[in-house]
Simulated assay, not measured.
Amino acid sequence: MDLALFAGGPFDVRAVVAGILPELHRDLPLDVVPWGNFPHGPDVREAVSALRTDGEPDMDATGVLGGLCANDSRAAVALAVPFLIPLAIDAQHPHRAAALDVLSGPARARYFGVASREELFLHRTDPARHVPDGYDDYGVEVTAYPAGWSVAAARIAITANTPALLPLLDDPDPAIRVEAAYALATAADLDHIVRTALAGGFEAERDPMVRAAFTLATAEITRAHPHPPTVAWLRERWHDDAEVPEVRLAAAIGWLCLTDDPAPEELRRIVDALADDERAHAMEALPWMSFAAGTNESGLLRCRRCMLHPEEPDPESTFLDSLFDQLKG
């Protein structure tokens, strides 16, 4: 199929999102976009409608949106992002946390269970570009829709609304600050506005988990926009024994994802010493870690194994092999 024939038209989620951004507001009618043109579009429309209500949603809206991303079907969820952002930035809306929790899912690709240095911070598609073939970076989703178009569309919406999302880094609720950092890390930050805000927030922040979130967000946005001083800053953070363990671990992971250098022996010792089961469980509060988790393995421990100890067996493979052996027996 020649995707160039569809680029810029009503089946190109990038073009549809770009077309509604100038009108973005909480009461923007849902039917201004052609949900039916995209796989699972009607389901996503219903989920967004549920989240927009002031009362209790009559469906698991975040489960629908998150599940589609987990199942590698992000196109319609990317279309939902412009409708979710006004909810997330409305401090009085009862579902703001839920909206913020899922709005950046389609801006990432292949991130469930991914914990390698190469793919944990997977950002290559430029949202300003309309790549004709759509296959240059991410291939296709399970529905055969070009995954790069979905990722780019979600990032277009988040980037356009960066000024509205930045104040959430100072929200009174630590969980909102964490999720805001997770969302903003996907923005196209050509003017370094997000990285500067994260740096200021890190200096002012006292909550260890939020500081770790700001560290991971800084690393992720630097993956998209290389900045050698930030790489050096991350090295200083994991090297600093006066820093809180959560930040040292986040900085170590971030540094590993931004360099091709072999892991220093000192970094291995630090991560192995700090990444115990209790801390790994606590750091599941960070979406980077919760989404990196696998079967019977937390995200932090999975990152440690994949990045520093690839020779160790994958608990998921071990579990499946054991189950298969039992079924054969």
Rank of each mutant, 00 (worst) to 15 (best):
A76Y: 12
A70G: 15
R129V: 15
H123L: 07
V114Q: 13
R117A: 13
R108M: 09
R74K: 13
G105S: 08
D72S: 10
S116K: 05
P106D: 06
P106L: 08
R117M: 08
G139D: 04
A98K: 12
S73C: 06
D137Q: 11
D133N: 05
V140I: 08
L87A: 03
V114R: 10
S104P: 02
P106T: 09
I85K: 03
L87P: 03
A99W: 00
P127T: 11
R96E: 07
H130G: 03
P86D: 12
L84S: 02
A91T: 07
V77M: 01
F121L: 00
T125M: 14
A88E: 03
E118A: 01
A91V: 10
L87S: 02
V142P: 00
F112D: 13
S104W: 06
D72V: 14
V140D: 00
A144V: 14
T125I: 15
F83E: 09
A97L: 15
V131F: 07
R124S: 13
A107M: 04
R74L: 07
A75E: 10
D137E: 13
F112G: 11
D126M: 15
Y135Q: 05
A115S: 15
L122T: 00
Y145F: 14
N71Q: 03
P146F: 01
I85A: 04
Y111Q: 09
H123N: 00
L79S: 07
A109N: 10
D101C: 14
T143D: 14
P132R: 08
P146I: 02
A115E: 11
D133R: 04
F112N: 12
G113V: 12
A115I: 13
E141P: 05
H130F: 11
D133E: 06
A107L: 05
E141Q: 08
P82T: 12
Y138V: 09
D126Y: 15
R124Q: 14
L122K: 00
A91Q: 02
E118F: 00
P146M: 02
P94Y: 14
R108N: 05
H93V: 09
T143P: 08
L84F: 02
A98N: 12
C69W: 06
Y138K: 08
